[in-house]
């Protein structure tokens, strides 16, 4: 599996590049991410700004924004996810083809952010879909989005496609779809997908005192 770096170094001047299929596939995937053209709120404006001339996201191979989830492999959750919107975000995620990645951009998508007290605001999209990268900020600057994109590229480049610890999309038993919550009388039903969202209750010691 492992490639002898010495051998690779010797062959390189001769124009021969020795690598593994895993690295090659991951290199290809990480170098041309197609984000979904999908803005929720304020962060979407900074997302657009990141694709424009000054910040030029095209440098990192991620400028082809697709309006259809079927053609996209990166979901940038850019903005506040309200409870009314959350089922649609999950449905869009389910419609994307594997491999697919999620960046939660901005405080709202991470945890509800400044709108956390709101009755119609979902306290973090990670309650329903798995999130790969979070970018804090309100809104994050375009540079922060580019940094998050580079972090995602690094993550993809290190993915294991075979073996015991392989990633979800390379695992035949991995789930690509997550249940879509339904509108209830007071709240979404269920309020979170407990299979993927189980926060560590950090209050126990203090609460017991």
């Amino acid at each position: 599996m492992a490639i002898d770096p010495k051998l690779a170094g010797e062959l390189k001047p001769a124009g021969i590049h020795v690598t593994s299929f895993e690295s090659l596939i991951n290199w290809g995937r990480s170098s041309s991410l197609w984000p979904m053209q999908f803005g929720l709120a304020c962060c979407a404006i900074e997302m657009i700004a990141a694709t424009m001339a000054k910040y030029d996201m095209a440098r990192f191979g991620a400028e082809v924004f697709r309006p259809s989830p079927r053609q996209a492999d990166l979901m940038l959750v850019a903005g506040t996810v309200t409870k009314k919107m959350a089922p649609l975000v999950v449905r869009l995620y389910n419609q994307m083809a594997e491999p697919k990645y999620v960046i939660a951009m901005g405080a709202c998508a991470i945890s509800g952010g400044p709108f956390k007290q709101g009755y119609n605001v979902l306290k973090g999209i990670d309650r329903y879909i798995p999130v790969d990268i979070v970018i804090p900020g309100c809104p994050p600057r375009p540079e922060a989005l580019l940094d998050g994109l580079l972090a995602l590229r690094k993550k993809i480049a290190g993915e294991k496609l075979i073996g015991d610890h392989r990633v979800r999309h390379a695992d035949p038993k991995g789930t690509a779809e997550f249940p879509v919550p339904e509108y209830g009388a007071h709240d979404l039903q269920p309020a979170a997908n407990r299979e993927i969202w189980n926060p560590d209750p950090v209050v126990h010691e203090e609460a017991a005192d």
Partner: peptide, 11 residues
């Protein structure tokens, strides 16, 4: 409407 109803008034 309402997909971005963030409860400004209540907050």
């Amino acid at each position: 409407f309402g997909y971005l109803h963030r409860n400004h008034e209540k907050i």
